[in-house]
């Protein structure tokens, strides 16, 4: 499965990373190298093998339904590039 420029452009868009036309060219090659290499997994017979969901042999711990966190807006917003009136501010979105 080899990928082309259009596919890379599509992936880059899904990942929200701007890629210039020039970068696109070199990225196609790099990604194909890596994908060709991982392709060797297809040799492995995995019929009837369960996919790993966790290396830890335990079940999900659950916490009590208590309010133990939050209530520190200033800390939450402190590192924000733009915060106004207690909100995070981003370029306007049109729905």
């Amino acid at each position: 499965m080899s990928i082309d420029k259009d596919t890379v452009a599509k992936i880059a868009n899904l990942a929200r990373i701007e890629v210039s036309e020039k970068e696109l060219e070199s990225t196609v090659g790099e990604l194909n190298n890596i994908l060709d290499w991982v392709e060797q997994l297809s040799e492995v017979d995995t019929d009837g093998v369960e996919a790993m969901t966790s290396v830890v042999e335990a079940s999900l711990p659950r916490r009590e339904d208590k309010v133990t966190d939050g209530g520190y807006r200033d800390s939450v917003l402190k590192n924000a590039p733009q915060a106004e009136h207690g909100f995070f501010a981003v370029p306007k979105v049109i729905e």
Partner: peptide
Amino acid sequence: KSMHDQHPTMTYVDL
């Protein structure tokens, strides 16, 4: 929640 009507060029986000 995104609020689109609070600012002419920004969307405000309340988490």
